[in-house]
């Protein structure tokens, strides 16, 4: 199966994607590569709305039966929304990793996203990893 990449997103080495919405809110999820490596996702531990986070913090966890992956926020700011639908259907991330976002951050400095890769760079990066 070939992995999908959304050209409109930016990607972290730790496999989160980020997208900036019109109002400057940053939406974060995990990549197709990450969901494929985890296989069947059974649970997503969501952060709490109102939490102040710093870029690099572990703010969420995505779990399969035998593994748990930490989700790191690529930007600092305040958590303003979490995707509560994942409580009932965590498998949405397997089915549509770029649609099933996990949390949204009101970023204090959008420039932090400059450190992320674009889709082409992330795809090239993944090609160097043992899957």
């Amino acid at each position: 199966m070939t992995l999908k990449y959304d050209p409109n997103l930016k990607y972290a080495e730790t496999d989160e994607w980020a997208r900036v919405e019109d109002d400057g809110i940053v939406v974060v999820g995990i990549s197709d590569y990450a969901q494929d490596a985890l296989s069947d996702i059974v649970y997503v531990e969501l952060p709490e709305v109102g939490d102040e986070v710093s870029a690099g913090d572990v703010v969420s966890t995505v779990e399969s039966v035998k593994a748990a992956a930490d989700i790191i926020t690529p930007v600092s700011g305040e958590i303003v929304e979490v995707n509560e639908a994942l409580d009932d259907s965590p498998e949405a991330i397997n089915e549509d990793p770029y649609g099933a976002w996990i949390f949204k951050v009101r970023a204090s400095a959008l420039s932090e996203l400059d450190a992320l890769m674009d889709a082409a760079a992330y795809e090239a990066y993944n090609a160097t990893r043992e899957h």
Binding site: Y43, S64, K66, A67, A68
Partner: peptide
């Protein structure tokens, strides 16, 4: 729910 446990989550 073994992801809570030491053999998967280790120090966490």
């Amino acid at each position: 729910l073994s992801t809570r446990e030491q053999h998967i989550r280790r120090e966490k």
